[in-house]
Every structure is written in C-alpha cells, then in structure tokens.
Nucleic acid binder design. Structure first.
Lengths: 199, 199
DNA sequence: CCTACCGATCGGTAGG
DNA sequence: CCTACCGATCGGTAGG
C-alpha cells in the first residue's frame, strides 16, 4: 500500500516557499544556492529535492502562488457591483494590500521570471494577463471614453501597473503615506488624468 | 616610459560596454560569462580583463554611463525657462527618448545593480537621486500645491517614475503609441491627477 | 594578447 | 511501489 502523504506536507511546502523566496529576493536566483535554502529551511538538501524536482520548479511555484494570490485578492475586490470609480480604487487597494507581505515574491516575479523555460514563463504570463484584464475592465468601466477600442486603454492601464508595481522601490511601511493613501493617490492620478486625456 | 593609450581605446571600451550590456540584459549578470562576452566582442578574455579589472567593474561602468546619459538628456530638456507644464513634458520626453537605444542598460540598472558592492551601489544611487530631483523640481514648479513640503510630492514623483520606468515592459517601437505620445500621456496623467489631488 | 589552468562552488543524485 | 529523509559526493563550469 502506498505511503500516505504526511499531514504537514503542505505546511512544509509553504514554509520552503516562503524561505526560498526571501533568499532568492535577497541574493538573486542564481546566487541563492540550494544548500543555503535547505539550511534556511532547516531541512536536508535531499528533503528539498523531495518537495521540488529542481531549482526551477521552486522558482515557478513561488511566482505561481504569488500571482494566484494577487488574482484572488483583486477578483474579490472587483466583484461587488460598486460604481466604476470606487471599484477601481478597491482593486488598486487590494493589489497593494496583497503586496504587503509579498515584497520578496514581487521582486522575484519582476526580476527572475526570465530564468524559467519558455513554457513555464508562458503559464505565468497568462496569470499576469488575467490581472491586467481585470484592471483594464475596471478602467474602461470607470472612464467610458477608454472603452470601445480606444488606443488609450493600454497605455493608461500600463501606467497604473507601472505606478503600483514600482511602489516597492520607494514605499516604506510606517511612512507618512499608507498603502491605503497610495491606493487613493494612484487611482486619482489615473482617473482624473484619463478623463482629461479622453475629453 | 609608459606605453601611451591606443587611439581607439575609448571606442573599444564603448563597444565592449554595449555588447556586454546586451548579454547581461539577455542572460542576467551571473549567467553571461566573461568567456561569452569576450567572444561576443570578438576579443580575447585577457583583453577584456585589460579594459576591466573584473566583472563588477564592467557592470558598474554600464550603469554609470547609462545614468550619466539620462541625467545629461533630462538636464538639457530642463534648462530652457519654459512654463512649468511644458518643461515637465519636455523632461519626460527626453527621458523616454534616452531610453530608446538603451533598453538593455535600463533592464540592467533595474535588475542587476544590487550585485555590486555597497559603495559602488551608493555612487550609482546618487546619480538616480539626481534624476529624481530634477523631476520633483519640475513637478513642484508645474503644480505649486505640490511644493512647500507637501506630503504628495514624493508619491506623485515616484508615480511618474513608475510609469516611465515600467514602459519597457509593454512599449513596442512602431506601435500605435509613439514615445512622444506616451510622454504626453504620462505627463497629463500626472499633472491633471496631481492638480485634482492637491485641490 | 593567448591558452591552460587554478580554487571554489554550483545544481543535482547516488545508495540505503 | 510509494514517500521520507540522511551523509556524501558526482560531473561540469564559473570568474579570474
């Protein structure tokens, strides 16, 4: 009879994911060695290879889990039938909030995804596209002039992602501007600016 | 007597810088080997080490040259005593234009700077701060409410950098939106949004 | 300006 | 035939 999966299998997997994400973010994917990661997790390297077939699989799982969490958070915020403007701000706020304890994962998504083989990258990029889609829809809803095939929708949507995905370069927890503040600021910049552009 | 520097010393140095930047951007700093770079430049590895003491020095020089070019372009655009709004758009346009043939260098600045030792990073970050300073000043000039110690100046300035520094993720040469178009769009988003926020 | 190497360390896998 | 875990070490390649 097959040996059943250990009760804490998933907890251990999550712990490995969190620790390795921190090490990848700090030293980069190539420089964080499997030995370091095993040590950081308090397990043997052989056990690490029991959970993940190779280093790439570890990187893939970190980014996939992260993107799934972002998508879940944003889709939840996008669900209520709120007016366009409030819905966009809720989405931006949900995204920034999902980034709160995921700085390492965010940096890895931005900087290390290209280390993966093309098919794996494609699977992750599909999840990124899903995220972009929700924001583009919320934007087109809040500023009707951006819908209907306007050339402005893409650059404006990407401008919003630029702001939000760049926040980790300057934003500091406990500073004068909170995450909620910045969600409001970014939403205002985009909405008022887009209305002016479209008008 | 010391051997004089070859007439084409600087041309060769620039060529090495451009080729290695392309390889670092494509494969990442760690994976692009000095052997690959030497081959790509059509020189021996020993000659490469004649120009640069080590791999770090090469990385440092790529980013320093790049940042110096950005600063020069933006300071030139910032010089004319144009009205605040036009000056900001000129600065954004100059920055986006300086990025035109520097996609590799831009990616390296964003992704690989942390590979350098702290003092070298500091020297480069000082150049980044100089760039930020010019934009913050142009913004405060164009939207007076952002000046005078407003808490909004930093997040709004960083929002602008987010938009512009993120452009390489989606912008394609020859697409429906030109660099000039996007300079206008980003400037409008920031200016109209900031006025609405400050008001 | 070249090639032959070095000390160190990598990701990954062996038997049990 | 599966999964859980160890100590030891593999072949290759990096920067210099």
């Amino acid at each position: 009879m097959a040996r059943p999966r250990a009760d804490d299998y998933d907890d251990k997997r999550k712990a490995i994911l969190k620790t390795s994400a921190a090490l990848f973010a700090e030293h980069g994917f190539d420089r964080a060695s499997m030995n370091q990661i095993a040590q950081g997790c308090g397990v043997s390297k052989a056990l690490l290879y029991h959970y993940y077939a190779n280093k790439d699989a570890l990187l893939f799982d970190i980014i996939r889990d992260h993107l799934d969490e972002l998508n879940a958070a944003v889709e939840e915020a996008s669900a209520p039938a709120a007016p366009g403007e409030a819905r966009l701000e809720a989405c931006v706020g949900a995204l920034l909030d999902a980034y709160r304890d995921a700085n390492a994962e965010h940096k890895i998504q931005i900087n290390e995804m290209k280390r993966l083989p093309p098919e794996q990258q494609e699977e992750l990029k599909e999840r990124e596209r899903q995220l972009v889609k929700v924001f583009a829809a919320a934007l087109a809803d809040a500023v009707p002039a951006l819908g209907g095939g306007s050339e402005l929708l893409k650059p404006v949507t990407m401008s919003l992602f630029g702001m939000v995905n760049w926040h980790y370069m300057w934003f500091r927890e406990g500073g004068p501007v909170s995450r909620e503040d910045y969600a409001r600021i970014a939403t205002r910049l985009i909405l008022d600016g887009a209305r002016s552009l479209a008008g």
